[in-house]
C-alpha cells in the first residue's frame, strides 16, 4: 500500500500537519473528557454491538486507553513510519474484531465533531481557527480511509485463507487397492494448489508404498501450460520414488488444448477415462481381474 497516495488523494500538505499540531496543543488537555463523550456516544449509537465488543469493564478500559493513545498521536500530527504503522495496526484490529466499517467511520466522524467542539470552546482566540479545524477534518478523514483500506485488505486475506482451507480438504487421496492410490482432482488448479497436491501425493506414495498412482483430472476445468507443467513434474517425482503415475480422464477438449498448446507430455501415461487407468493399474500391481470369480 502506498501511503503517499492517501496524502495525495486527500490533498494533505505539511501545512495541514502544522495546523493540526497548532490545534492539538490547545485541545489535547481535553482528552479525558473527549474519551468519556466518545464512548457515551458509542454506547448509545452502537447498542448491542457495543456490548459484543466490550463485554466487561476490563475490555472497555483497554479500548479506551488505546483510543486515548491513538488520538493523542493524531493531535501530535507526525506522519512518520511509527504513525503509519500504528494506523495499519488499528485497521488490523478492527478487521480481527469484525467491527463494521460503518461503525468505525461513524465513530471517526463523531470524534472529529467532538474535537471541533473543543476547538471552539477551548481556543476561540486562536487565529485562523476555521482553517485549523478544516485541516484536522481532512487529516482525520484520510486516516479513516487508510484504516478502512487496511480493513478491506485483511478481510480479503481472510477470505483467501478460508478458500485455501477448503481446497486443502479437497485432496482426498484414497487407496483403492493394495499398492494403488487414486486422487480425483476437481476444479481449478493454480500453482499453489498444484504444489499442495504434489506434496500430499508424494507423502502418501511413501506412506502407503504405492506402486501405481492414478491422478484423475476429468473434473479439472482448465489444463494450461502451468497445470501441464505441474502434472509432468508430479509424474517425474513419483517415478523417482518408484511409483508409476497414470493421468486419467483427459476429455477430448482438454486433449485438443494440450496439443494446440504444444505441450510435450513425454512418457507421462494418460488415459481418456478412469476405467482404462484402472485396467493398467491392476496389471502393474499384479491384481488378477476376474470379475465374479472367487
Amino acid at each position: 500500500m502506498n501511503y503517499e497516495e492517501f496524502k495525495l488523494l486527500y490533498e494533505i500538505s505539511e501545512i495541514d500537519y502544522e495546523n493540526v499540531r497548532k490545534l492539538g496543543v490547545r485541545i489535547a488537555p481535553a482528552i479525558n473528557d473527549f474519551i468519556d463523550r466518545l464512548y457515551a456516544y458509542m454506547r448509545e449509537a452502537l447498542g448491542y454491538e457495543f456490548d459484543v465488543h466490550f463485554p466487561d469493564e476490563a475490555s472497555l478500559a483497554r479500548a479506551q486507553s488505546l483510543s486515548r493513545r491513538a488520538w493523542l498521536e493524531f493531535l501530535e500530527a507526525k506522519w512518520d513510519d511509527a504513525y503509519v504503522k500504528s494506523r495499519v495496526r488499528i485497521g488490523e484490529v478492527h478487521a480481527q474484531l469484525q467491527i463494521q466499517p460503518r461503525h468505525y467511520l461513524a465513530t471517526m466522524n463523531k470524534s472529529l465533531e467532538l474535537w471541533s467542539h473543543f476547538a471552539h470552546t477551548m481556543a476561540p482566540d486562536q487565529s485562523d481557527l476555521s482553517k485549523l479545524i478544516e485541516s484536522m477534518w481532512r487529516v482525520g478523514q484520510m486516516e479513516g480511509a487508510l484504516v478502512v483500506d487496511v480493513y478491506s485488505q485483511r478481510t480479503g486475506e481472510i477470505i483467501s485463507q478460508q478458500s485455501r482451507a477448503l481446497t486443502d480438504m479437497s485432496t482426498p487421496i484414497t487407496a483403492i487397492w493394495d499398492g494403488i492410490l487414486m486422487l480425483p482432482v476437481v476444479g481449478i488448479v493454480d500453482s499453489r494448489r498444484a504444489q499442495d497436491i504434489m506434496q500430499r501425493m508424494l507423502e502418501q506414495i511413501a506412506e502407503k508404498r504405492a506402486i501405481v498412482f492414478i491422478l484423475d483430472i476429468s473434473g479439472v476445468a482448465v489444463v494450461d501450460t502451468a497445470v501441464a507443467n505441474h502434472l509432468i513434474r508430479m509424474t517425474k517425482a513419483a517415478r523417482l520414488m518408484g511409483s508409476y503415475t497414470i493421468v486419467s480422464g483427459l476429455s477430448p477438449s482438454v486433449a485438443q488444448t494440450i496439443v494446440e498448446l504444444g505441450i510435450e507430455v513425454g512418457d507421462m501415461k494418460t488415459t481418456g477415462n478412469l476405467q482404462d487407468a484402472l485396467k493398467i493399474a491392476f496389471d502393474r500391481a499384479g491384481v488378477e481381474q476376474k470379475i465374479g470369480a472367487k
Binding site: A221, V222, D224, S251, S253, V254, Q256, T257, L261
Partner: peptide, 9 residues
Amino acid sequence: AALATAVSE
C-alpha cells in the same frame, strides 16, 4: 475449454 485455457495463460 480452449478460450478458458488461453485466458488462464
